[in-house]
């Protein structure tokens, strides 16, 4: 199977690998996917509660090269964005950027879910009530 150059680049040099302190009230954690499906993504973001700007983002992913690339790209994109801007990222943007083939679209869906889950967790910690249904979903085919 042929991977796009961008997928290979992210796979070989993943950005922002690591973990943030789960207990920090300013850190939101999203964990989506399942091992038996072959993909699990953990995305964490540290958000400034005053400016609502995402100051740090870290990921760890168990999955194929496209899943690793999707989550690596997601951390790159969310950094410096506000919570609202990050929530507007769509899986189709990831598909386009990484030139994912149809069988790998679920990787981008998972990355979008991970962003929503992490920010949902952050909002919950901040006591914000506007929990959108998407935040807990981890759609997977």
């Amino acid at each position: 199977m042929a991977y796009s150059d961008k997928v290979i680049e992210h796979y070989n040099h993943p950005r922002n690998v690591g973990s943030l302190d789960k207990a920090d009230p300013n850190v939101g954690t999203g964990l989506v996917g399942a091992p038996e499906c072959g993909d699990v993504m953990k995305l964490q973001m540290k958000v400034n509660p005053q400016t609502r700007v995402i100051e740090e983002a870290k990921f760890k992913t168990f999955g194929c090269g496209s899943a690793i690339a999707s989550s690596s790209l997601a951390t790159e994109w969310v950094k410096g964005k506000t919570v609202e801007e990050a929530l507007a990222i769509k899986n189709t943007d990831i598909v386009r950027e990484l030139a994912l083939p149809p069988v790998k679209i679920h990787c981008s869906v998972l990355a979008e879910d991970a962003i929503k889950a992490a920010l949902g967790d952050w909002k919950k910690k901040q006591g914000e009530a506007d929990l959108k249904p998407a935040e807990t979903a981890s759609a997977h085919n």
Partner: peptide
């Protein structure tokens, strides 16, 4: 124990 965790696997 990863094998005992509850994973959210939602259908699309």
């Amino acid at each position: 124990d990863v094998s005992k965790m509850k994973w959210q696997v939602a259908a699309e």
